[in-house]
Design a protein around this nucleic acid. Sequence first.
DNA 1: CTCCTCGTGTTGATGCGTCAACTCGAACGC
DNA 2: GCGTTCGAGTTGACGCATCAACACGAGGAG
Lengths: 139, 139
Amino acid sequence: MNDLLAAQVIRELARDSGLSDADYTVLVVLSEAPGHRMRSIELTRRTMWSKSRLSHQLTRMEGRGLVRREEPADNARACDAVLTEDGLRRIETAAPAHVESVRRHFIDLLTDDELDMLGAVTERVVAHLTETGEHAAEP
Amino acid sequence: MNDLLAAQVIRELARDSGLSDADYTVLVVLSEAPGHRMRSIELTRRTMWSKSRLSHQLTRMEGRGLVRREEPADNARACDAVLTEDGLRRIETAAPAHVESVRRHFIDLLTDDELDMLGAVTERVVAHLTETGEHAAEP
DNA sequence: CTCCTCGTGTTGATGCGTCAACTCGAACGC
DNA sequence: GCGTTCGAGTTGACGCATCAACACGAGGAG
């Protein structure tokens, strides 16, 4: 189910807006951040991605003009990711259709009880993964 | 949860047995097939993969000596995938640890009720995906 | 028989994710 | 001040997945 569902939703996102799911994730997080900007390290925390993955992703998105990298004045070794005008427009256009896609293929098919239970299960599994010495991101 | 859980289980599989999840899938299906052999087209059906993806996967696995390709005598345009001795040994060694990994990180954390519910949800969502003209594999 | 279409399978280009190795500035001990 | 360690970020190589284009045999229509 996971594979099929994710594949379908991702395919619709790509078809409708030309964004990958990774693009979408970064754009959403940045669009909600003050100043549409965020430290790289904070982005890896929010997305649960590795530094490497984020770096590659930002490189690709920078090439497509969705984000910009800036070195913050107060810390030379850090790196901010900043949403561009274009990136903001893209996420604002894409979001409604994507939300609707997830609803249509998943949320609307479940009862409230099922959603509640799924939330509980998710919380438990994630807690177990993170506490059992699981650092997916960095060794 | 999906992403984290899958990442963890896949990482353990790779660490313990040197197999990717795609490798594992193919090996399991083939090991259960009569004669440890199966038509490519049947493999795509079982795995819900595209022809292309399967072909690339078989090429890689063939390079590593896990499977062999054979042209069946009765049909020149078809193609059988056959498990090698090595492939069989690999899957037999890898399977127990993988099953245990899934149990430990997921199954054992859920109650029977939750598992039942998840089964029902999965069935419903997959049915919706497949009936709504969704052919993930081929356009 | 000839041509056409269709089903089966392969290939190449491209994007994505991971791993290991690396750079480099900052903070700390002395 | 000076070296050492540490944390943040980048890079390159590789495996994997997708898409579009192609190859080619089988089966049917005429």
